[in-house]
Design a binder for these strands. Structure first.
Ligand SMILES: [Mn+2]
Ligand SMILES: [Mn+2]
Ligand SMILES: [Mn+2]
Ligand SMILES: [Mn+2]
Lengths: 223, 223
DNA sequence: ACACTAATTTAGGCAAGACTAAACTTTATT
DNA sequence: AATAAAGTTTAGTCTTGCCTAAATTAGTGT
């Protein structure tokens, strides 16, 4: 059962997990883009992943890939490592939040279960990483949470930032400066049609933010 | 200058460093034993390491390998990572000292300079790892320290444990139990010829230890 | 000097993971 | 339904890092 997965395989599984939300298969090109690998290479790897014992993905030519239960478990294990590491790097080692992803992406493949347990304990069993993404439980269940893009809100509206979905370090640094981080309360004051700008007030300050930003910020869902 | 070294290469350089104390070249077999790799494979790697730009080792057929200045710098960088990590795992994350080596051996190849600096700062710039080995300075100078095997002492003698040289986890666990760790003061009370046993008192307790143990314990040198 | 042994190298192979170029499907457009 | 565009797969190569078996070299004792 405990077959040693390579770093490469773990990254593939993680990417497939991320791209196959809602049961949709992850396409070859999407994976290639996500992983920065040529599409041809992805095809090769998907075939291998579908033929391991036990198979880690279900793969149909030209249709893309889905994780098998085994594959999903392996993916969640890596994601748990990743998110715990991000949290640890940020909270305990003082890494700026825009830097944690890259470091965690290397460490995630290498830490032992003992390491995982220790940082989990030191952090007090956190439920979310610094970007607001939920951390899978020790028995690998991913908490299901609903949130909607800030870009879809219309004034007047008060809400709280749940999650920030961005990889670009510069954008993350900017968001941090403006307090556009998980936990921040904000009020949507105005909406401009055509350009989709929102006027919001957050932490006492008022600001206008365009869709290139509001698209990446997820807030609590209304009832 | 900053060529990306692979994990495998880093482990070779570290092993060559360890085996080539006093300028002696590291032999193929010794490296093979240290790295758990077939001698033939070691030969192949040594040739590659001697032909990189810049060369990392100086290699002469049947004569073994020495590090070039570039190779030594790379080795010291990895050793610094390793020893800082061991210290961190032990002190900050509460890993038992017999487990830190294995974990550090994987992490050492993967942490960034930022990570290195953070844990160094959190630990207060430690000079020695949990086994008493000196940590190379940030600019990669290895402190030179003299110590002698406990097995060479003869009563009566009082000394302090400086360093423990062992990889076996069971032995390390045992030593820890008996307070045979760096920093412990001890008194050599008696020596048995033929079997080489030493009677020592440490932390109030008296005990007899054989050469299989005293060989691995290094104490401060007399003047 | 010679032969035996231990250490080392050579030769040939394999698996993982990547790439490019070319061929082929699927999907979208007209 | 025909065709163009986009997406995907096949085929062939490369590098890294390891392996085993066989050949060779160095070192030692006589
Ligand atoms: Mn990764
Ligand atoms: Mn884990
Ligand atoms: Mn290592
Ligand atoms: Mn470093």
């Amino acid at each position: 059962m405990k077959n040693q997965l390579t770093h490469a395989i773990e990254d593939y599984l993680k990417a497939i997990y991320a791209l196959s939300v809602e049961g949709e298969a992850a396409s070859t090109t999407a994976l290639a883009a996500e992983l920065n690998i040529a599409p041809a290479s992805v095809t090769g790897m998907l075939k291998r992943l579908a033929e391991t014992t036990p198979p880690l993905v279900e793969y149909r030519k030209h249709r893309g890939a889905n994780l098998t239960p085994d594959g999903e478990r392996a993916a969640l294990e890596v994601i748990r490592h990743h998110r715990l590491l991000e949290t640890y790097l940020h909270q305990s080692l003082g890494f700026p939040w825009e830097d944690v992803h890259e470091e965690a992406c290397r460490l995630e493949h290498v830490i032992s279960e003992a390491f995982e347990e220790r940082i989990d304990a030191v952090l007090g069993h956190p439920t979310h990483d610094p970007h607001g993404d939920p951390i899978p439980s020790p028995n690998l269940v991913m908490p299901q949470e609903a949130s909607i893009p800030l870009s879809t809100l219309r004034p007047p509206q008060v809400t709280t930032i749940q999650r920030v979905n961005a990889n670009d370090a510069d954008l993350l640094r900017y968001l941090d400066e403006k307090s556009l981080v998980p936990g921040s309360k904000l009020e949507v004051r105005a909406f401009s049609p055509f350009d989709g700008n929102l006027t919001i007030s957050i932490e006492g300050a008022e600001m206008v933010v365009g869709p290139a930003i509001t698209h990446h910020i997820f807030v609590e869902e209304e009832d």
